[in-house]
Design a protein around this nucleic acid. Structure first.
Lengths: 210, 210
DNA sequence: CGACTATTTGAAGGGACTCAAGGCGTGTGG
DNA sequence: CCACACGCCTTGAGTCCCTTCAAATAGTCG
């Protein structure tokens, strides 16, 4: 579980929640509020002009969304699972890289976590082979998901994973089955993921399996 | 080769240059200097542990590299073409989203431009089909490259484009040939790219051609 | 229960990769 | 100045992985 009680922000924290599928930001909206995810998973989605939809990133507990780098939201944000988050004002989120002030570091760290999420996708998409991409994605996801005894909360629909990895839902399903048959993972229950062989998963993510 | 020895960390601008292939940053280096590209093209490269190399982004004139979001450089930066750039110190690059101060906006804009570069790649890799990706890449690149009369300086080797787009150099070559036969582009000379049909290029980038 | 969505599985076809060889351009050294 | 080497681009042929299409099953929510 993730506890943000030790993180202090200057403005008052307000607790919010959202149901799966709910939209938090819409691409193009003015940047007016900053969200810090406490529990649950959210996705950044790009809707291109010709109706094509693309999952650009997943956000996990601790991530900060909506930092006003630009004047407008650069992507839509939708809840994947049940969310709880806090809302902050952009005011006072000053960042000064040279100073080690607490607040400044928080803002830089928030921006960096967001950018990391996009870079991570790029690195996965750069790898060849569906199995490699799926393996890399699982290794990435479980580093950010809460777990009990190697059993992770895994609320990500395969269709979102497929969009994120630029592949088809059928391929995602087939790779999951293969991973189950290889006894690398198990699905004890819906929205749960058990990692049976962390080491082999790492090798798959690097493209060296079989 | 590597420059850090002769770089001075001052708040004033110093002009520098680099030859094609030169390395400006190495992944993992401490973030000590900020570069602003004046002319030329640079690439951000990721070297993974198993020796796999991946071009993660291209940087164009006006972009800022090496902003210390994290303690260490997040990628290596290499010159693609002849570069000229200025070096800045991280000191004084304070950012405060709520204030409209000049320097503050510069830093936020610099971060945003960098992040945009990574996001752009993700959006391209998410598209299906080599032709769509190449088209989207060309449309993206020429928005950042200097030109005279629709003839752009295009110093990007096809091997870099292939790595960037997660495809093979052969495929890049074939798509270029097809674009030439379709009279969308022309290559009047090495390192030059002429756009003959901007509109058709846009349609190709959206996945609707033929 | 029944409608809906998400997942699963199979079959077939095509697009991109790999492998291999040849051409082109550039820089270097004899 | 020429010959050569090297890297990059080009082109062809064959193979395979992944997509598409189609249909069945499972899970969810009213």
């Amino acid at each position: 579980m993730y506890h943000s009680s030790n993180l202090q922000f200057q403005s008052r924290e307000i607790g919010f929640s959202a149901r799966p599928g709910e939209t938090l930001f819409v691409q193009g909206d003015p940047c007016a509020k900053i969200l810090r995810l406490r529990t649950g998973v959210a996705r950044a989605v790009d809707y291109s002009l010709n109706g094509f939809r693309q999952v650009m990133a997943f956000f996990f507990p601790g991530d900060v969304l909506g930092f006003p780098l630009a004047a407008e939201q650069r992507y839509s944000v939708e809840a994947v699972s049940e969310l709880s988050f806090t809302v902050h004002s952009p005011m006072g989120w000053a960042t000064k890289p040279s100073c080690a002030g607490n607040q400044e570091l928080q803002a830089l760290d928030a921006i960096w976590r967001e950018e990391k999420a996009f870079i991570a996708r790029g690195l996965m998409l750069g790898r060849a082979g569906s199995m490699t991409r799926i393996g890399a994605f699982l290794a990435y996801a479980i580093r950010h998901l809460p777990a009990e005894d190697d059993i992770y909360d895994f609320p990500l629909p395969q269709s979102d994973i497929a969009s994120y990895l630029a592949t088809s839902p059928e391929t995602v399903c087939r790779m999951f089955r293969q991973l189950r048959e290889m006894e690398v993972i198990a699905i004890p229950r819906k929205d749960r993921l058990q990692v049976l062989d962390r080491h082999k998963l790492g090798r798959i993510a690097e493209g060296l399996w079989q």
